[in-house]
């Protein structure tokens, strides 16, 4: 155990950080020192100090409390978005590869169209139609990501299908759904898991990027992208306002990337 950690210092640190982040996000109401929405005009734009470790913003709100509360709005939705995307990918991709008939071809043409569309453009168009707000952004991101997962999972299942142990499992009396759930999916799970973790950082960047553009979460939400947008206007007077949320986005995205790369090397 210790030798594993010693050989993987950086991935271990990244993993620790992510565990800590998730705990912080879940326990936000109890551990944040101040109310993240409470404004105090006497204390606006204070630099980091012992009372306010991350400083305060232009309305006098405590930045540390806002960053802590922001975790549940910046990071947790990513897991939900990716779960939905993976579920769609598994259902459609497996079904498409397993049957492998004309529907498969139709499905692939459809995913071709979606992968060809620039995802940012698609998202902005969808939000433009449905209006601002986080729910619409999640929907738009799912819409621009599902095709990639369907294609990759279809490809993986297609390869696994040719393995001798799938033929052998038929002879052992496994058919249809049983082959898929017991013999195919467990064998492609390692690849999908690695891909998911690598994509977490991309989705974090997309979501906070959209908030930064002003089409995702709306103020006064403590979402990190929104906070970054606030900080942009005070970059000269109060650089800490942009630095801390931006740094959190960077750290989180980098941590998931490091773990994903490590897992990829494993295989």
């Amino acid at each position: 155990m210790i030798s594993i950690i010693r050989a993987n210092k950086l991935p271990t640190a990244a993993l620790l950080y992510i565990i800590l982040l998730i705990i912080t996000g879940l326990a936000a109401p109890w551990i944040s020192p101040y109310d993240p929405f409470h404004t105090n005009h006497q204390q606006k734009l204070l630099p980091p100090s012992i009372a306010h470790p991350f400083g305060t913003d232009y309305l006098g709100r405590d930045l540390l409390s806002r960053v802590i509360h922001g975790t549940s709005e910046s990071v947790f939705p990513v897991f939900i978005v990716l779960s939905v995307v993976m579920l769609i990918g598994l259902l459609v991709g497996t079904w498409s590869a397993f049957l492998g008939n004309k529907l498969d071809m139709l499905m692939m043409s459809l995913t071709d169209i979606f992968t060809a569309l620039p995802s940012m453009l698609l998202t902005i168009v969808v939000v433009g139609f449905l209006g601002f707000g986080m729910e619409n952004v999640y929907f738009a991101v799912i819409l621009s990501w599902w095709a990639k997962y369907v294609r990759i999972i279809r490809g993986l299942i297609h390869d696994v299908k040719k393995e001798p142990y799938i033929t052998a499992s038929r002879v052992s009396g496994a058919f249809g759904l049983r082959i898929i759930t017991r013999h195919m999916i467990p064998n492609i799970m390692p690849q999908i898991g690695t891909m998911l973790i690598l994509d977490v950082s991309k989705v974090i960047l997309t979501l906070s990027g959209l908030s930064f553009l002003g089409i995702g979460a709306q103020p006064p939400s403590p979402e990190w992208g929104v906070m970054l947008l606030d900080g942009k206007n005070y970059l000269q007077v109060a650089p800490w306002m942009g630095f801390f949320p931006g740094f959190m986005i960077f750290l989180t995205a980098a941590s998931f990337q490091i773990i994903g790369e490590r897992l990829r090397r494993e295989r």
Binding site: E163, P164, Y165, T167, A168, S169, R182, H183, P186, N187, M189
Partner: peptide, 8 residues
Amino acid sequence: GSTLNPAM
């Protein structure tokens, strides 16, 4: 070496 499911 691949007629048994490697994930089981």
